[in-house]
Design a binder for these strands. Sequence first.
DNA 1: TATAAAGACAACCATTCAGTTGTGCAAATA
DNA 2: TATTTGCACAACTGAATGGTTGTCTTTATA
Lengths: 107, 107
Amino acid sequence: MIERRDVFQAIADPTRRIIINKLSTGPLNITQIGEDLDMSKQAIAKHIKILKECGMVMMHQKGREQVCEAQLAKLDEVTDWVAQSRKVWNQRFEKLDKFLAATKNKL
Amino acid sequence: MIERRDVFQAIADPTRRIIINKLSTGPLNITQIGEDLDMSKQAIAKHIKILKECGMVMMHQKGREQVCEAQLAKLDEVTDWVAQSRKVWNQRFEKLDKFLAATKNKL
DNA sequence: TATAAAGACAACCATTCAGTTGTGCAAATA
DNA sequence: TATTTGCACAACTGAATGGTTGTCTTTATA
């Protein structure tokens, strides 16, 4: 098995997507992130760790608080992959269209 | 734990992303999909099952073959989420800009 | 017709994952 | 100063994941 700690795996978890959503509105500390998330703070901290490890969250200390900030640039990797897949998919139909047009001309 | 069989989880696995990529070019049966994937056919079949369960792959029988076809529409869910997160993220800076502009006017 | 190929089904296995609790420490606050 | 708060660290747990092998059925093919 390959080491998977990438953006795709990071956003696979619904809780982590919620965390990203929350952080989109601005920096928050771990307690604030977990506020309405019915889950221990330790669980939140683990999710943050994963998001940090794959470059989706930056952190800095502020007294005893750990302030988290989202880094949405990493999501490019996801949209790029989707765009590429869609491109190939569409090319398939374009080729079919061309073939059909060419066939039609020969009738 | 919540039941998670959605597109986000589907594309989290690198093997499944490769499968999607292959199917983007056109329909393939399970053996063809697994061709250069250094993995048992059963493993491939399991991945296909997951992709089918979350609506990313359609299948139809053709003799003894099981022909798989990608359904990329489901990827909208992913791009929509990313787009929404980015939107909120950008609004944050727009608000900051407005605030700075307003502050500047008062100096 | 005998054999090979495609794939379904099930059992099994090791690892990862998402969560828990408990302890402890440093920073903030009453 | 005593207490609370924020969070790190560690150990543990049950379930999910990603893979394996073996058996069996159906369909193609030599």
